[in-house]
Write a protein that binds this DNA or RNA. Structure first.
Lengths: 241, 241
DNA sequence: CTGGAGTGAATGAACGTTCACTCTCATGCA
DNA sequence: TGCATGAGAGTGAACGTTCATTCACTCCAG
């Protein structure tokens, strides 16, 4: 935080300090990568600082020059998770039809959460959030951002006739998030949950759950979704980029 | 295990040995209850045996007379969880329409998983299953039982026209389980997720996701679901009970 | 020669587990 | 009845280990 604003303020002499700052940041990220592997392998509390040091190829004393404590490392990981997630949720703002947007987002989310480490880490963060108040505050901030983005998209979709006006938007959004986190946790334990089968089923679920019922759709002037489930959503051109 | 079969074999003289065996079992359950509180509060690895002893009102030495190790306590808790879950999934076998059966099951499941401890414990078990192979084996046995029950119910429902024949049964089942576990984890962090709002949304989701599409339904001779979402499923009379 | 990068042994606390011990009480024997 | 016996319930200090964290130290570039 301090680093970031300092960097901006001295941008004119960036060359003088960029090297050391970047080196420091690179070391921090090396430690974070090692910590994520260890935490995914053993959990926050069973993984020891010695494990992280060994994985990062670094002595304990040196590691403590970059992170004040184990808690600080955990917090940094949760924050990195938040930033990465926030990026994924921007898909919704660039998509006209929120149902297709959610399907696209789900694909991106599930692709991001592949591998051995990501699911274990994600689930560990949630489990820890249910007991550690500081972790919970962090996770809630994360999830409230995502919730706001999804809810706004759904309400926009309702106005434009893409989405059933009868749904309970807040509960629906949280149900979909719960589904996402649940899939992340369950997928590594079921080898038949391949990407394409899950994608197809999720498409069907989203289309049927969120679309206005046929009767209501017929009565609506706005033409709602009529394409097939395999088409990617048509992205709106983004004015700023 | 040994105790159980022994008890059966000497049932004629049960009075002589019933008292000590029951006392032992009562102590074991007292320890398990304490351990569940501690594990829910701090997680499997951060909760210490001293914490559990204090919560159970018992010395460390005595506790080890009832459980060989901390791992053994964790295993016993996971097993108890499995047994309790298996009971809930029997609802499906007593219900003609699996969509209503799943809605009913979801209600029972969410009611069971209330309180402060149950969600934290359930999530902790899943998180631990993603790294500890022994815990994973136990959890997979648990979930495969449930999966089989759900999948059988859905296939039966497809034959009878209650459920869309086009769904991917295995993936759909696992998606619904993921949704359930996700709700358990998310609900404590969102106070608007009240029982009735979640139940209503889940009813809608299940009805729309699983029912045959309107076109297919009209072409089917079997009359599918036509009741409203608030009605409880009509339970079939169970021949054995 | 100064200051940041990096080391690794040392520290005290806390961990899971063990063990020598006491207490209680039903039973066997006088 | 009165007493010795021993098995099971329960205790809590002690064990060796591992933990997160610290610190006196070396190294090296500028």
């Amino acid at each position: 935080m301090h680093m970031d604003s300092a960097t901006v303020m001295v941008q004119g002499v960036r060359d003088e300090i960029a090297a050391p700052v970047d080196a420091r940041e690179a070391q921090r990220e090396r430690i974070l990568a090692a910590a994520m592997r260890c935490f995914a392998r053993s959990g926050f509390h069973k993984a020891s600082m010695q494990d992280i040091c060994a994985d990062a190829g670094m002595s304990a004393g040196n590691l403590y020059r970059y992170f004040r404590s184990k808690e600080a490392i955990i917090a940094a990981i949760a924050e990195a998770d938040r930033v990465r997630n926030a990026a994924v949720f921007e898909i919704l703002e660039r998509t006209e039809d929120p149902v297709r947007g959610l399907a696209c987002l789900a694909r991106a989310f599930l692709r991001d959460m592949h591998g051995r480490d990501a699911p274990a880490l994600c689930t560990e963060i949630i489990a820890e959030s249910l007991r550690n108040p500081e972790m919970r505050a962090m996770f809630e901030r994360n999830i409230n951002e995502a919730h706001a983005a999804c809810a706004a998209a759904l309400r926009r979709g309702i106005e434009r006739g893409f989405v059933d006006a009868g749904i309970d938007v807040d509960v629906t959004v949280r149900l979909l998030m719960a589904l996402g986190d649940g899939i992340i946790a369950h997928r590594p334990m079921a080898d038949f949950m391949t990407d394409d089968r899950v994608d197809t089923a999720l498409d069907t679920l989203l289309e049927r759950f969120l679309r206005p019922p046929a009767a209501a759709r017929a009565a609506t002037a706005v033409k709602a979704y009529t394409g097939n489930a395999d088409t990617l959503p048509s992205l709106q051109p983004t004015p700023s980029a």
